[in-house]
């Protein structure tokens, strides 16, 4: 019985892993037959510029998510207050909004005549800040949920003990709670960074230029075709995979 259960787990798990893996392997292996195309893309400055821009913008978006999302996550994990479930619902809204619509709504706020864009000295449309807000909008739920899970998982008695010993709430937060959830925060940050990198639909509405990697891939596909778009996609996949593995290993090492 035990064996059949393990078999059950193994078969179903492998199906879902294959489902994820097959399209990626197919893309990579097709590219292998067009190795020259890959080399050409590797030597293309525009490709690297767009990938670096993507990583950089995603990093900024993640930093903002950590700074503003962590207190909210703590609030949601620790306190009950009227309207809490509404706030929880609001933080999840970006997940269900279609990306193009997200882009259009962001344009209404951050566009030159938008609520914020009309007086903001920072220009959002077709500029880096526009990319960052688009990325932040779609990736923030992932971070907040991960951090909230973290805060929920720590033993509340540790905080209470610190309080009885005379530590102020802020001291408890910064010296007890925060260090305990560091791993959750890091894991959440990595996931939201990754989600930001993959964003396309919202970004092209608010900032077609400067071109992030997903826009460049789409652009190459539309203007030249699949053969020009695929190498860029392959580079982005491999590089992101490498960054991911390294970050995960670092996290894993910390756990030990």
């Amino acid at each position: 019985m035990r064996f059949s259960f393990y078999l059950f787990l193994a078969v179903l798990s492998s199906i879902i892993v294959l489902f994820i893996l097959l399209p990626i392997v197919a893309t990579l292996s097709t590219q292998f037959y067009d190795f020259d195309g890959l080399l050409e893309a590797l030597g293309d400055k525009a490709v690297w510029n767009s990938i670096l821009l993507t990583y950089y913008a995603a990093m900024l978006s993640t930093l903002i998510a950590v700074v503003f999302g962590t207190p909210l996550a703590y609030l949601l994990a620790r306190y009950g207050f009227p309207g809490k479930s509404i706030i929880e619902g609001i933080t999840d809204v970006p997940v269900v909004i279609p990306h193009t619509v997200a882009g259009i709504t962001l344009l209404a706020v951050f566009g030159s005549n938008g609520l914020i864009g009309s007086f903001s000295p920072v220009k959002f449309v077709d500029a880096l800040p526009g990319i960052v807000v688009a990325m932040l909008f779609v990736s923030i739920p992932i971070y907040i949920n991960a951090a909230r899970e973290g805060f929920s998982s720590i033993d509340i008695r540790l905080e209470q003990v610190a309080r009885t010993l005379g530590a102020s709430p802020s001291r408890v937060f910064f010296t007890i709670s925060l260090p305990l959830v560091a791993r959750h925060i890091a894991a959440g940050a990595i996931m939201s960074w990754a989600r930001a990198i993959s964003e396309f639909g919202a970004i092209i509405v608010i900032a077609y230029y400067p071109m992030v990697a997903p826009t460049l891939i789409y652009e190459r596909y539309v203007s030249t075709g699949l053969s020009a778009a695929r190498p860029v996609a392959v580079i982005l996949i491999l590089l992101s995979l490498a960054v991911f593995v390294v970050l995960r290993l670092l996290l894993w090492g910390q756990k030990r």
Binding site: A46, N49, K123, V125, D126, I204, Y208, S223
Partner: peptide
């Protein structure tokens, strides 16, 4: 190439 069009985005808006 599209990434090299380099529009001055305070005057021009280009979309795909």
């Amino acid at each position: 190439k599209s990434e090299d069009i380099n529009p001055d985005t305070s005057k021009l808006m280009i979309r795909s």
